[in-house]
Protein backbone atom coordinates (compact mmCIF):
# COMPACT_ATOMS: atom_id res chain seq x y z
CA UNK A 1 0.00 0.00 0.00
CA UNK A 2 1.62 3.25 -1.16
CA UNK A 3 0.04 6.27 0.48
CA UNK A 4 0.75 9.89 -0.39
CA UNK A 5 -0.29 12.59 2.06
CA UNK A 6 -0.34 16.25 1.00
CA UNK A 7 0.40 18.64 3.84
CA UNK A 8 0.52 22.40 4.01
CA UNK A 9 2.64 24.54 6.29
CA UNK A 10 0.35 27.23 7.72
CA UNK A 11 0.38 30.01 10.28
CA UNK A 12 -0.70 28.65 13.65
CA UNK A 13 -4.51 28.84 13.86
CA UNK A 14 -4.30 28.56 17.65
CA UNK A 15 -1.95 31.54 17.95
CA UNK A 16 -3.33 34.60 19.73
CA UNK A 17 -5.10 36.91 17.26
CA UNK A 18 -2.87 39.78 18.44
CA UNK A 19 0.09 38.19 16.63
CA UNK A 20 -1.78 38.39 13.33
CA UNK A 21 -1.14 41.32 10.96
CA UNK A 22 -1.99 42.01 7.34
CA UNK A 23 0.33 43.93 5.07
CA UNK A 24 -2.17 45.90 3.01
CA UNK A 25 0.36 46.66 0.26
CA UNK A 26 0.99 43.01 -0.58
CA UNK A 27 -2.28 41.46 0.73
CA UNK A 28 -0.15 39.07 2.76
CA UNK A 29 -0.29 37.93 6.36
CA UNK A 30 2.56 38.54 8.78
CA UNK A 31 2.79 36.60 12.01
CA UNK A 32 4.71 37.99 14.92
CA UNK A 33 6.14 35.66 17.50
CA UNK A 34 4.16 32.58 16.47
CA UNK A 35 5.96 29.94 14.40
CA UNK A 36 4.13 28.11 11.59
CA UNK A 37 2.72 24.61 12.06
CA UNK A 38 1.49 21.83 9.81
CA UNK A 39 -2.14 22.31 8.93
CA UNK A 40 -4.45 20.69 11.55
CA UNK A 41 -6.51 18.80 8.96
CA UNK A 42 -3.32 17.66 7.26
CA UNK A 43 -2.32 16.19 10.61
CA UNK A 44 -5.59 14.23 10.69
CA UNK A 45 -4.71 12.96 7.19
CA UNK A 46 -1.32 11.79 8.48
CA UNK A 47 -3.10 10.01 11.35
CA UNK A 48 -5.42 8.32 8.85
CA UNK A 49 -2.45 7.15 6.78
CA UNK A 50 -0.72 5.70 9.84
CA UNK A 51 -3.88 3.79 10.81
CA UNK A 52 -4.06 2.28 7.30
CA UNK A 53 -0.35 1.43 7.29
CA UNK A 54 -0.78 -0.35 10.63
CA UNK A 55 -3.15 -2.88 9.04
CA UNK A 56 -1.98 -2.91 5.42
CA UNK A 57 1.73 -2.24 5.64
CA UNK A 58 3.38 -0.15 2.94
CA UNK A 59 4.95 3.25 2.64
CA UNK A 60 3.77 6.77 3.47
CA UNK A 61 5.21 9.66 1.47
CA UNK A 62 4.27 13.20 2.44
CA UNK A 63 4.47 16.13 0.03
CA UNK A 64 4.58 19.78 1.05
CA UNK A 65 4.74 22.81 -1.22
CA UNK A 66 6.16 26.24 -0.53
CA UNK A 67 9.42 28.12 -0.14
CA UNK A 68 11.80 28.20 2.81
CA UNK A 69 9.73 25.55 4.53
CA UNK A 70 10.73 24.99 8.14
CA UNK A 71 12.23 21.54 8.44
CA UNK A 72 10.94 20.94 11.98
CA UNK A 73 7.43 21.70 10.72
CA UNK A 74 7.34 19.69 7.50
CA UNK A 75 9.18 16.80 9.18
CA UNK A 76 6.51 16.37 11.85
CA UNK A 77 4.67 13.67 9.83
CA UNK A 78 7.97 11.74 9.63
CA UNK A 79 8.27 11.97 13.40
CA UNK A 80 4.70 10.63 13.66
CA UNK A 81 5.65 7.64 11.51
CA UNK A 82 5.61 8.58 7.80
CA UNK A 83 8.49 7.23 5.70
CA UNK A 84 9.49 9.76 3.08
CA UNK A 85 9.23 13.47 2.49
CA UNK A 86 9.05 15.29 -0.82
CA UNK A 87 9.29 19.06 -0.85
CA UNK A 88 8.17 21.17 -3.77
CA UNK A 89 10.33 24.02 -2.64
CA UNK A 90 11.00 27.03 -4.77
CA UNK A 91 9.97 30.66 -4.75
CA UNK A 92 7.89 30.17 -7.90
CA UNK A 93 5.57 27.75 -6.06
CA UNK A 94 4.30 30.39 -3.64
CA UNK A 95 1.38 32.80 -3.98
CA UNK A 96 -0.73 30.25 -5.80
CA UNK A 97 -4.43 29.44 -5.73
CA UNK A 98 -6.26 26.11 -5.69
CA UNK A 99 -5.51 25.57 -9.38
CA UNK A 100 -1.80 26.15 -9.36
CA UNK A 101 -1.35 24.26 -6.08
CA UNK A 102 -3.39 21.21 -7.08
CA UNK A 103 -1.63 21.16 -10.44
CA UNK A 104 1.87 21.15 -8.95
CA UNK A 105 0.90 18.49 -6.38
CA UNK A 106 -0.72 16.30 -9.04
CA UNK A 107 2.40 16.49 -11.20
CA UNK A 108 4.58 15.60 -8.21
CA UNK A 109 2.31 12.63 -7.42
CA UNK A 110 2.71 11.46 -11.02
CA UNK A 111 6.46 11.64 -10.57
CA UNK A 112 6.27 9.60 -7.34
CA UNK A 113 4.55 7.14 -9.64
CA UNK A 114 3.32 4.33 -7.47
CA UNK A 115 0.35 5.27 -5.33
CA UNK A 116 -2.80 3.55 -4.10
CA UNK A 117 -4.19 6.30 -1.96
CA UNK A 118 -3.76 10.08 -1.85
CA UNK A 119 -4.85 11.73 1.38
CA UNK A 120 -5.41 15.43 2.04
CA UNK A 121 -6.98 17.35 4.90
CA UNK A 122 -10.55 18.36 4.21
CA UNK A 123 -9.47 22.02 4.08
CA UNK A 124 -6.47 24.09 5.17
CA UNK A 125 -6.75 26.34 8.19
CA UNK A 126 -5.60 29.45 6.31
CA UNK A 127 -7.63 29.44 3.09
CA UNK A 128 -10.50 27.31 4.43
CA UNK A 129 -11.21 26.25 0.85
CA UNK A 130 -11.02 22.45 0.63
CA UNK A 131 -10.24 22.32 -3.07
CA UNK A 132 -6.79 20.75 -3.26
CA UNK A 133 -7.94 17.14 -2.82
CA UNK A 134 -10.83 17.25 -5.31
CA UNK A 135 -8.60 19.25 -7.69
CA UNK A 136 -5.83 16.63 -7.62
CA UNK A 137 -8.37 13.87 -8.27
CA UNK A 138 -9.80 15.72 -11.25
CA UNK A 139 -6.34 16.35 -12.73
CA UNK A 140 -5.22 12.74 -12.20
CA UNK A 141 -8.57 11.32 -13.32
CA UNK A 142 -9.09 9.22 -10.20
CA UNK A 143 -12.16 9.19 -7.92
CA UNK A 144 -12.34 11.27 -4.77
CA UNK A 145 -14.27 10.91 -1.54
CA UNK A 146 -14.36 14.00 0.70
CA UNK A 147 -14.90 14.45 4.46
CA UNK A 148 -13.80 11.00 5.61
CA UNK A 149 -14.31 10.05 9.26
CA UNK A 150 -13.13 6.45 8.84
CA UNK A 151 -11.19 4.60 6.12
CA UNK A 152 -10.91 0.81 5.81
CA UNK A 153 -8.76 -0.51 3.00
CA UNK A 154 -8.97 -3.96 1.47
CA UNK A 155 -6.92 -4.97 -1.60
CA UNK A 156 -8.21 -2.62 -4.22
CA UNK A 157 -11.07 -0.81 -2.49
CA UNK A 158 -11.42 1.71 0.30
CA UNK A 159 -14.58 1.73 2.39
CA UNK A 160 -15.03 5.30 3.58
CA UNK A 161 -17.41 6.76 6.12
CA UNK A 162 -18.18 10.24 4.85
CA UNK A 163 -19.53 12.91 7.20
CA UNK A 164 -22.95 14.31 6.23
CA UNK A 165 -25.26 16.83 7.88
CA UNK A 166 -27.24 14.14 9.72
CA UNK A 167 -24.66 11.41 10.24
CA UNK A 168 -22.54 9.67 7.67
CA UNK A 169 -22.67 7.63 4.50
CA UNK A 170 -20.60 4.54 3.78
CA UNK A 171 -18.97 4.65 0.35
CA UNK A 172 -16.88 2.07 -1.49
CA UNK A 173 -14.30 3.61 -3.78
CA UNK A 174 -11.85 1.74 -6.00
CA UNK A 175 -8.14 2.50 -5.59
CA UNK A 176 -6.21 4.49 -6.53
CA UNK A 177 -8.26 7.39 -5.26
CA UNK A 178 -8.10 10.64 -3.34
CA UNK A 179 -9.69 10.88 0.10
CA UNK A 180 -9.96 14.08 2.15
CA UNK A 181 -9.91 13.58 5.90
CA UNK A 182 -12.06 15.23 8.56
CA UNK A 183 -11.34 15.60 12.27
CA UNK A 184 -13.72 12.79 13.25
CA UNK A 185 -10.99 10.34 12.15
CA UNK A 186 -9.47 10.67 15.63
CA UNK A 187 -6.77 12.68 17.36
CA UNK A 188 -3.39 12.67 15.60
CA UNK A 189 -0.78 10.79 17.60
CA UNK A 190 2.14 12.60 19.19
CA UNK A 191 5.59 12.02 17.71
CA UNK A 192 7.65 9.66 19.85
CA UNK A 193 11.25 10.38 20.82
CA UNK A 194 12.30 7.53 18.54
CA UNK A 195 10.17 9.01 15.76
CA UNK A 196 11.79 12.41 16.19
CA UNK A 197 15.26 10.83 16.03
CA UNK A 198 14.35 8.88 12.89
CA UNK A 199 12.86 11.98 11.25
CA UNK A 200 16.08 13.89 11.87
CA UNK A 201 17.98 11.40 9.75
CA UNK A 202 15.58 11.45 6.79
CA UNK A 203 16.65 13.89 4.10
CA UNK A 204 13.76 15.41 2.17
CA UNK A 205 13.73 15.04 -1.61
CA UNK A 206 13.45 18.48 -3.17
CA UNK A 207 11.78 18.97 -6.55
CA UNK A 208 11.90 22.17 -8.56
CA UNK A 209 9.25 22.84 -11.23
CA UNK A 210 11.51 21.38 -13.94
CA UNK A 211 11.82 18.16 -11.90
CA UNK A 212 8.07 17.55 -12.09
CA UNK A 213 7.74 18.71 -15.67
CA UNK A 214 5.87 21.93 -15.09
CA UNK A 215 6.55 25.36 -16.48
CA UNK A 216 7.03 28.10 -13.88
CA UNK A 217 4.08 30.04 -15.33
CA UNK A 218 1.73 27.16 -14.40
CA UNK A 219 2.48 27.22 -10.70
CA UNK A 220 2.40 29.64 -7.81
CA UNK A 221 1.43 33.23 -8.31
CA UNK A 222 1.75 33.04 -12.11
CA UNK A 223 -0.50 30.00 -12.46
CA UNK A 224 -3.49 31.29 -10.54
CA UNK A 225 -6.93 31.97 -11.94
CA UNK A 226 -8.32 33.64 -8.84
CA UNK A 227 -7.23 37.15 -7.92
CA UNK A 228 -7.30 38.49 -4.43
CA UNK A 229 -8.76 41.98 -4.63
CA UNK A 230 -8.47 42.76 -0.94
CA UNK A 231 -7.43 41.12 2.30
CA UNK A 232 -8.45 42.87 5.50
CA UNK A 233 -9.25 42.36 9.14
CA UNK A 234 -12.90 43.07 9.81
CA UNK A 235 -13.12 45.93 12.28
CA UNK A 236 -14.63 44.43 15.36
CA UNK A 237 -17.22 46.64 16.91
CA UNK A 238 -15.43 46.35 20.23
CA UNK A 239 -18.60 47.51 21.86
CA UNK A 240 -19.14 44.75 24.29
CA UNK A 241 -21.49 45.94 27.02
CA UNK A 242 -20.19 44.57 30.28
CA UNK A 243 -22.53 43.71 33.11
CA UNK A 244 -21.14 45.26 36.27
CA UNK A 245 -21.38 43.89 39.77
CA UNK A 246 -19.74 43.94 43.19
CA UNK A 247 -19.28 40.18 42.92
CA UNK A 248 -19.17 37.69 40.03
CA UNK A 249 -22.61 36.49 41.12
CA UNK A 250 -24.03 39.98 40.87
CA UNK A 251 -22.41 40.43 37.44
CA UNK A 252 -24.05 37.17 36.34
CA UNK A 253 -27.50 38.28 37.46
CA UNK A 254 -27.01 41.71 35.91
CA UNK A 255 -25.99 40.10 32.64
CA UNK A 256 -29.35 38.31 32.53
CA UNK A 257 -31.15 41.62 33.22
CA UNK A 258 -29.18 43.34 30.48
CA UNK A 259 -30.19 40.69 27.96
CA UNK A 260 -33.83 41.08 28.92
CA UNK A 261 -33.57 44.88 28.65
CA UNK A 262 -32.07 44.61 25.18
CA UNK A 263 -34.81 42.09 24.27
CA UNK A 264 -32.18 39.52 23.35
CA UNK A 265 -34.02 37.06 25.57
Amino acid sequence: MNIIVCIKQVIDPEAPPSSFRIDAATNKVMMQGAPPVIDPYGEYAVEASLKIKATQGGKITTISLGDNLLREVVKKPLAMGADELVLLEDEVYIGGDSWSTAYALAMAIKKVGEYDLILCGREASDTNAGQTGPGISEILGVPCVTLARKIDVTDSTARVERVTADGYEVIDVPLPSVITVSNEIGEPRYPTIKGIMTAKKIEPVIWKPSDIGVEPFHVGDAGQRTRIARLYQPILEGECEFAEGESPEEAGANLALKLREAKVL
Binding site: F20, I22, S125, N128, I228, A229, L231, Q233, P234
Partner: peptide, 10 residues
Protein backbone atom coordinates in the same frame (compact mmCIF):
# COMPACT_ATOMS: atom_id res chain seq x y z
CA UNK B 1 -9.88 33.23 5.74
CA UNK B 2 -7.35 32.39 8.44
CA UNK B 3 -10.17 30.96 10.51
CA UNK B 4 -12.10 34.23 10.46
CA UNK B 5 -9.10 36.38 11.45
CA UNK B 6 -9.36 38.09 8.09
CA UNK B 7 -11.74 38.48 5.19
CA UNK B 8 -10.60 38.15 1.61
CA UNK B 9 -12.31 39.51 -1.46
CA UNK B 10 -11.62 37.38 -4.52
Amino acid sequence: VYGGNAQAVF
